[in-house]
Amino acid sequence: MTYAVSGPTMDYLDRFADHAVPVLCLGAALAVGTLGSRVVGSVLGAVAVGWSAWAGATAPDLGAITNYGPDLQRAHVAIGKGLAKAEVPAANRTLAVTDAGAIPYFSGWESIDYIGLNDRAIAHGADPTDVVANARPTVVVVTSADPVPTAGRYGFDLARGTAGYVRVNSVQLREGYWQVVYALPQYAGTVGSHVQEAVAQAAPANDPGQPLDTVERWLNRLRRQLPF
Score class of each variant (00 low, 15 high):
Ala102Met: 09
Asp71Pro: 03
Ile122Val: 02
Thr138Asp: 02
Ser37Arg: 12
Ile112Gly: 04
Leu44Met: 02
Ala64His: 12
Ser37Cys: 10
Pro137Cys: 00
Pro70Gln: 06
Trp51Thr: 15
Lys81Ile: 03
Val139Leu: 10
Val142Ser: 01
Ala59Gly: 04
Asp130Tyr: 05
Ala78Gln: 07
Lys85Val: 07
Leu62Val: 09
Gly69Asp: 10
Ala46Pro: 07
Ala75His: 14
Tyr105Val: 09
Tyr114Glu: 10
Val142Gly: 05
Leu35Phe: 12
Val88Ile: 15
His124Asn: 15
Val49Met: 13
Trp54Gln: 06
Asp99Tyr: 12
Ser144Arg: 06
Gly116Glu: 03
Ala86Glu: 09
Ser111Thr: 10
Ser111Trp: 09
Thr98Ile: 13
Arg38Ser: 07
Ser144Leu: 08
Ala133Lys: 15
Pro147Arg: 03
Val139Ile: 10
Pro89Tyr: 08
Ala126His: 01
Arg38Asp: 05
Leu117Asp: 14
Asp130His: 11
Ala102Lys: 08
Trp54Met: 10
Asn118Lys: 09
Arg136Ala: 15
Val77Ile: 11
Val140Pro: 11
Gly116His: 05
Asp130Ile: 04
Val139Cys: 11
Asp146His: 15
Ala96Lys: 00
Pro147His: 10
Val142His: 06
Asp99Met: 12
Pro104Gln: 01
Arg93Phe: 13
Ala90Asn: 10
His76Met: 11
Ala57Arg: 00
Tyr114Gln: 03
Thr138Val: 04
Val47Ile: 13
Leu62Asn: 01
Ser107Phe: 07
Asp130Thr: 15
Arg74Lys: 12
Gly69Trp: 11
Asp127Leu: 06
Gly50His: 02
His124Gly: 12
Ala75Lys: 11
Trp51His: 09
Lys85Tyr: 08
Tyr68Ala: 14
Ser52Met: 03
Val49Asp: 09
Ile103Trp: 09
Ala75Cys: 15
Ala145Ser: 06
Ala126Asn: 08
Val47Ser: 00
Ala102Leu: 07
Arg93Pro: 10
Ile79Cys: 08
Gly82Met: 07
Leu44Ile: 04
Gln73Leu: 14
Ala57Pro: 00
Ala126Ile: 00
Val132Ser: 02
Ala123Pro: 01
Ile65Thr: 12
Gly50Pro: 05
Leu117Ile: 15
Pro104Ala: 00
Phe106Lys: 05
Lys85Trp: 08
Gly116Pro: 05
Thr94His: 08
Ala90Met: 08
Asp119His: 14
Pro147Lys: 05
Ala78Met: 11
Ala53Val: 11
Pro60Ser: 11
Thr98Gln: 11
Ala48Phe: 02
Ala86Pro: 08
Ala90Glu: 13
Thr66Arg: 01
Gln73His: 13
Ala102Asp: 14
Pro128Lys: 01
Gly63Lys: 03
Thr129Asp: 00
Asn92Ile: 03
Thr94Phe: 09
Gly63Val: 00
Ser42Lys: 13
Thr34Asn: 06
Leu95Ala: 05
Ile112Cys: 06
Asp61Tyr: 11
Gly63Pro: 03
Gly69Met: 10
Gly45Pro: 03
Ala135Glu: 07
Ala57Thr: 09
Asn118Met: 04
Val97Gln: 02
Ser42Leu: 15
Asp130Phe: 10
Glu110Asp: 06
Ala121Asp: 08
Thr138Asn: 03
Arg120Lys: 15
Ala86Leu: 03
Phe106Glu: 12
Pro89Ile: 04
Thr58Phe: 01
Thr94Val: 04
Leu62Gly: 01
